[in-house]
Computed example of a mutant assay.
Amino acid sequence: MPTALLDLILPPRCAGCDAPGALVCPRCTAELHGEPACRMPTPSPPGLPECWSATGYAGAARRTIIAYKERGRTALARPLAGALALTAAAAAGGRPVTLVPVPSARSAVRRRGHDPVTRLTELAAGCLRAAGWPATVARVLAQRRGVADQAGLNSLQRAANLALAFEVAAGRKGPAVSSWGGAGPVVLVDDIITTGSTLAEAARALREAGVTVPLAVTLAATRRKGESSSP
């Protein structure tokens, strides 16, 4: 039976700590929301926008993200989107936002049965609008070619794997970009930032279409070796 269906018919257990009673318990929700802040990878690839994340990719946050992306617990999209919305609000500093999701690889979408980042982006925009914050979603990025799984690749390998991997979808280029840019900043959205290669490549594709991309937001930032565990 699919995990998403089990979440509907069985008493929920926290994805972060396995405690009964909620999809994400209050303690793990607090850990997931963390402290939205600018967390840039070191070194950062050229062209990387200013990157904000809700928390570090560890503990309850890591377990919850994996459960959502890889274990079919799609009901976790709403609590995760709440953390993403808070991060976008902190990054934008009161301005309206246009959120642009980074598309998943086609093979990953087939394996998972959904595009997790696009779903989170749409829900996060809904959270912002419900709070009175102007937010739109522009699904304008597309994959130009296939890419390999990024797991296990170092920063140079990730950059090579993603080089020229994205483009602005046909029909969204040229004068059309002015119709979805909005009054505030364009904000790239992904789930995790590790080396920054994915977000840098996505930003390049948008800049080539004439779109300025000052910000990116993610749920979590992977800590590099030797980095402090503090936010």
Rank of each mutant, 00 (worst) to 15 (best):
A89F: 04
D115Y: 07
P103V: 12
A108D: 07
G82S: 14
P103C: 10
T87I: 06
L84N: 03
G94W: 06
R110K: 14
T98H: 00
A81H: 10
L86H: 15
G93Q: 11
V109R: 13
V97Q: 09
T87Y: 05
L120K: 11
G94P: 05
P101R: 13
A125E: 07
V100Q: 02
P103D: 09
V117M: 04
A105M: 01
R110W: 06
R106P: 00
P96S: 03
A83V: 01
T121K: 06
V117W: 07
A90K: 14
L84A: 10
R110M: 06
S107R: 15
E122N: 03
L80M: 11
H114A: 12
S107Q: 13
G113T: 11
L84C: 06
T121L: 05
A124C: 08
P101Y: 09
A125C: 10
D115N: 14
P79I: 12
R95P: 02
P103Y: 09
A85S: 09
E122T: 13
D115M: 06
V117L: 03
L120V: 12
V102G: 02
P96I: 06
A83L: 02
A88M: 04
S107F: 10
P79K: 10
L84H: 02
T118M: 07
E122P: 00
T121R: 09
P116Q: 13
L84K: 05
P96C: 07
A92F: 10
V117T: 14
A108G: 10
T87G: 05
P101V: 08
T121A: 14
R106F: 00
A81L: 13
A125N: 11
D115A: 15
R78E: 15
D115S: 13
T118N: 07
V117D: 04
L123R: 15
R112Y: 08
A108I: 00
V100W: 01
A83D: 05
R110T: 12
A83H: 03
L99Q: 10
H114T: 03
P79L: 13
H114D: 06
H114I: 01
